[in-house]
């Protein structure tokens, strides 16, 4: 565990909590992609099956449980409790366009052809692209609430911090996991356009709107 990894985890946690609180406090999930949230729940479910097979640390197990519970809570709030506020007309990205190719890739490119390893690989690849329905939704409506942009910024920063962690781990421990690194870079690149808008608009007190 190094500082970049810890900051990455905390940033991830912050993102998840920002989103949950936004939905809970405003009693609304307008502007949030339910498709992305379902994909994230799927990501955590397929990645953290090792909760049952492998104990690493209290920190590790606790964080996994928190991520899992929060992501399912978000999906529950969106599709049940506050379903009336869910903006499904603008959330039209087809999940199968991500899940099917990512599933195929996980079968073909993995470290080990075992069920748990393939599911872990699937979750790494899926996480890289799971935000696309949300970005697609913002591009359709042309804007995002400020609180939603804070959520996206924290979520994007998490993987960027992990990349620094991987560089650090490579030089200090000689550790690297090519699958995680490549997927993590793809994931971070997808956020670059958003990061630019966040820094030039949201941090200057304006709402995030896309140029016409």
């Amino acid at each position: 565990m190094n500082i970049f990894r810890l900051l990455g985890d905390l940033s991830h946690l912050l993102a998840i909590i920002i989103l949950l609180l936004k939905i809970w406090r405003t009693r609304s999930c307008a502007g949030v992609s339910g498709k992305s949230q379902i994909l994230f729940a799927l990501v955590f479910t397929t990645r953290y099956l090792d909760l049952f097979t492998n104990f690493i640390s209290m920190y590790n197990s606790a964080m996994k449980l928190i991520y899992l519970v929060c992501s399912y809570a978000t999906v529950f709030l969106m599709y049940f409790k506050f379903k009336a506020t869910y903006d499904s007309n603008h959330d039209t990205f087809r999940m199968e366009f991500l899940v099917v190719p990512v599933g195929g890739l996980a079968f073909l490119v993995n470290h080990d052809f075992t069920p748990l390893e393939i599911l872990w690989t699937f979750s790494i690849y899926l996480e890289a692209v799971a935000i696309l329905p949300q970005l697609f939704m913002i591009s359709k409506t042309g804007e995002a609430e400020t609180i939603t942009s804070h959520y996206l910024f924290a979520l994007g920063s998490y993987r960027a911090l992990y990349i620094v962690n991987w560089v650090f781990r490579f030089y200090t421990e000689g550790f690297f996991d090519l699958i995680a690194i490549v997927a993590g870079c793809v994931q971070t690149i997808l956020y670059c356009d958003f990061f630019y808008l966040y820094i030039t608009k949201v941090l200057k007190g304006k709402q995030l709107t896309l140029p016409a």
């Binding site: 991830h12 964080m63 996994k64």
Partner: peptide, 10 residues
């Protein structure tokens, strides 16, 4: 490849 030995990341 003992991958799970190294899967301490989240």
């Amino acid at each position: 490849y003992d991958s799970f030995k190294e899967k301490d990341e989240l």
